[in-house]
């Protein structure tokens, strides 16, 4: 986590957070607040009716600052985007694929293009639970390799011990999923490879 937030990748991380309609403040204390209670921070797990509140009511922006009211409310903003089944009810992957959004990849340099890598990692899961498919392609469209390597995942087979427990506790995939990316409750999106 510390490495994620060194100034170099900090910018990209901020950009990502902004794009997913969340604020910087939250991004930065992810690890701290999670230590106390992993789900306290998990705003994406709120009931549907409480999701995507207007900026003045989201607990992030200052309701006493008049410029808060200049910001476009998420529900209005999201209405033109492909809908998702969870989180803030936007399918961000589709939104990007369909060109509905074109996030700038780098905060300071508008000409930077991502290095997209189309590599799938399948992690077999014991029992009847479908296997996990981790797609690099969809991630590298948003994120730089340095957002994950080597701080969260060592890019080497067998070097990472990932479990649902660690994810729920906000580690590994849970560094992002449930906070700035779709939530843990959407099991099938990760466990997408049915067994024979």
């Amino acid at each position: 986590m510390n490495k994620l937030l060194t100034t170099a990748s900090f910018n990209k991380f901020c950009l990502l957070i902004f794009f997913l309609g969340l604020a910087l403040v939250s991004g930065v204390h992810i690890s701290d607040s999670l230590a106390a209670d992993p789900n306290a921070f998990n705003r994406l797990m709120k009931p549907k009716s409480e999701r995507n509140p207007p900026p003045a009511k989201d607990g992030i922006h200052d309701p006493q600052n008049e410029t808060t009211f200049v910001l476009q409310p998420p529900r209005e903003q999201f209405s033109t985007l492909p809908t998702g089944k969870s989180g803030n009810y936007v399918d961000w992957v589709k939104a990007l694929e369909e060109g509905k959004i074109s996030p700038r990849y780098d905060l300071t340099d508008p000409s930077v293009e991502p290095v997209v890598m189309d590599l799938n990692i399948v992690r077999e899961v014991k029992g009847s639970m479908p296997n996990v498919v981790y797609p690099h392609k969809q991630h590298t469209e948003w994120l730089d390799c340095s957002n994950c390597h080597p701080a969260i995942f060592i890019p080497q087979k067998g070097a990472n011990n990932i479990s649902m427990a660690s994810i729920i506790l906000g580690e590994k995939c849970g560094v992002c999923h449930g906070k700035v990316a779709f939530p843990i409750a959407d099991c099938r999106r990760c466990h997408s490879s049915k067994k024979e």
Partner: peptide, 9 residues
Amino acid sequence: LDKKTIIHE
């Protein structure tokens, strides 16, 4: 690694 799939058994 383009279009590859690595399986962790």
